[in-house]
Every structure is written in C-alpha cells, then in structure tokens.
Design a protein around this nucleic acid. Sequence first.
DNA 1: TCCATAACTGACGAAACCGTCAGAAACGGA
DNA 2: TCCGTTTCTGACGGTTTCGTCAGTTATGGA
Lengths: 216, 216
Amino acid sequence: MTDASPTRLDRRKARTRAALIHAAQTFIAEGRTNTAILDLTQAADVGMGSFYNHFSSKDELFRAAVEDALDRHGAALDELTRDMTDPAEVFAYSFRLTGRLHRRRPQLSKVLINTGLSIATSEHGIAPRVRRDIQAGIRAGRFTVADPELAFTIAAGTALCLGQLLHTQPDRDDAQATDQITEDLLRTFGVPTDEAHQISRRPLPDLDRLLPDAIA
Amino acid sequence: MTDASPTRLDRRKARTRAALIHAAQTFIAEGRTNTAILDLTQAADVGMGSFYNHFSSKDELFRAAVEDALDRHGAALDELTRDMTDPAEVFAYSFRLTGRLHRRRPQLSKVLINTGLSIATSEHGIAPRVRRDIQAGIRAGRFTVADPELAFTIAAGTALCLGQLLHTQPDRDDAQATDQITEDLLRTFGVPTDEAHQISRRPLPDLDRLLPDAIA
DNA sequence: TCCATAACTGACGAAACCGTCAGAAACGGA
DNA sequence: TCCGTTTCTGACGGTTTCGTCAGTTATGGA
C-alpha cells in the first residue's frame, strides 16, 4: 500500500525534480534545447548524478517541462473561468487572459511558443480547453461554425502567433491587440458584430492579484 | 571584376551545397535537428570534410536550409499569382495554394511547421508576401481591418496551424478545409460574406502541372 | 598535354558528452 | 541515539562528436 501523506523525503525529491524542470523551461524559453545535461543540472543547482534519479534522457525532461508549463496554464485558466456560464464568454475570457499572459509570464509564454505547433495536439494545457469551449459554444447555439476542428485551428494558430507578435513588438499594447483579435475570432465563429465587440471588452479582474505565482 | 558565367566548377560546388541543404531539410522535416554533422554529410552523399567548405556550423546549415525552403515557396507563389490584380484574390489564392501544398510537398511543409513561429518574422518566404498583400488590400479598399499587423498575425498563425492539422488528420479533405478557412479569413478582413465565399471557391489551376519540381 | 587552382575526402587528435557507480548526506522510524 | 533506506553527488571510463589537414580528384587555361 502506498502511504498517502507526503513525507519530507518526498518533498526533497519533488524539489530537485522541480528545479530540473524549471531549469529546462528556462532553456526552452531561450531556444537552447540542445544543451548538455551538465548545463541543465548546474542551472538547477543540482548534482550531475541527480539527473538520472528523475529522468532517463534529456528528451524526457523537456517533455515533462513542457507538460508542466501547459498544465500550469490550463489550471490557471480553469481557476479564472470557474464560475462563468456563457460558452462564448468563457472562450473570450480565456483567450484574453492568455493574450495578457505573454508579457506577464514571459518564460511560460516562450515555452509555449518555442514548443511550437505540437501543443495544439497535446492533451495538456490550452488545446483541450479551447476545444471544449468551442464545442460547448456550438451546442449552446452561441457559435455557428462549419467545422469545430477548423475553428480550433484558427483560434490556436492565432493565439500562438499573437504571443510571438507581442514579444517581437514590445511597445505594442498587448491588451488592445488581444481584445481586438478576440473580437475578430468571435465574429468568425458567428457571434453578431456588436455582441462580439461587447464581450471582448468586458472588464477583466486584476491579473496581478489573480496570477500571483507562476514560473519565473 | 567577377566572371558572371557560372563555370563547371561553380556548378559542382553548388551541387554539393544543395545536397547538404536538401539533407538538412529532410532532417528538419523529421524533427531531428540534433544530428551529427557526419550523419548530414552521409545523407547528402558527400564527404565529411566537404561540410566545412560550405558552412561553419550546423546552425548555419540549418538556417540556410530553412531560408531555402522559404524562398522556394515564396518564388512559387509569386509565379502562380503573377498576373492577378485584385489584392483580395491574390491573398485568397496564395492562402489556398499554401494550404494545398502541405500534402503535395510534405517535406517543405514540415520544414515550415517544425521551424515554427519564427518564420512569421522572417524576411524570406511567405510572411513578407502576406504582409504585402494585406497592405495592398487595405489600400485598394478591399480589406477593412483595424491593424494590418494583427490581420497578418491571424493569417500566419492560422496557415501554420492548418498545415499541422492537415498532417495530423490525413483523411481530412485538404482543399475543402483550406477553402473554408480562406473564406473565414476574408470575412474577418471585412470582405462581404457572399463575396468571400465566391472568391475562396474560384477554380484553381492544375497544381500537378504548375508545381512540377520542388524539394522531395 | 601539362600545370595551377579550387573543391572534395576521410582519417586523426582533441574535446565534449554521456551514463554509471561508489561513497556521502539526508531522512524516518525505533 | 542508531541504523536501514532513499536520495544526492561528482569523478571516471567509454563513447560520440568536432574541426583540421594533408593528400586526392576535378576543373580551366595555356
């Protein structure tokens, strides 16, 4: 039988694992994915040998690092949209929050961007949630789209490229750009023009309060 | 003064360079970007030492390989849209051709996809052309968008993610999906609904005839 | 035909990297 | 406190990869 309560030993193990994952995310965000294992362990301030206590290859660590980033972001979105009902609003809200995240959590954002399009097919993170929201919007009659998967493709690709844009043009107003694109997407999904505009400008909560702890 | 006419020696040099670039593109398409230089030269059927006659590092070769793929695709688009005048039609045409390219030129397509979002900021290939077309559409009064760069972001991200989708779902009708998304984009850019539909369904030329030679 | 030049080639020493392992340190229970 | 267990650690041998370079082959002109 497994002991449920995490002991101090468990916490220590989890700490070094987290340190390795965090270091890996730093490297991914910088696009340096072919670093030596020794570099990773040094960045994590962990002994070289510890690496193989947690991962059997560099690839495995990087996969875990991406998965961790996706799960964090997904969990944050779930938390923030918990008590919303209108699917169109949930979608818009998630998209607007994600757009605002690129500047506020640059490392997380860059991990997503550098990981590339494969995250669109991942079971973790944003992709399944966006799919779910689009499906819900269709069922509720809020969205009118020919093919849900195509709608998802547009939303996912746009979200990623928007993140790239916000990093490339640091002077651009991220909130304004994100809301504008959200409005465009809602219209593409069949939401009436005026309503799309309205939904995409609704006030958002104080992000500094709601996203207090995230990676880096 | 440089002798303009390419001599036989020049052609030989160009051949081995092209062989290396082609091999690199194969590896990029397969996502294997951390291969040994020896593997690359063997795949190119070229002696190991030849590598350093052309490139000073693996990175340099990979950059050249991506640039080559982008330039080929851009040139093909220029060729195919040469005598079109309506900017909206040029945009739609390019987008529809690019969508159909993912299946017909899987290696080129996968190079673009695996290279990721950085090609959206590249000076080569599709990005500058899409920007140009969108600007032209706005000047001509065919597009009504708040911000050209945001319009570009939507188009670029969607194009990439569409390519990914078409590889992930090999049974999906690529022409149908591409045309549907083209129509959505045109509407987003302010083209009236019925006209957007019409433009995105106009007959295309025989691609097998027009794209006879491309990589792989 | 013959030579000068440019490009190609693979073998080699040097360097980087990998994965293991024996010992050290931290932990938990008794 | 003491001991068995788990995790951490860095040094080490083995392997892979790198970049060079001396020799070979192809090319162009005389």
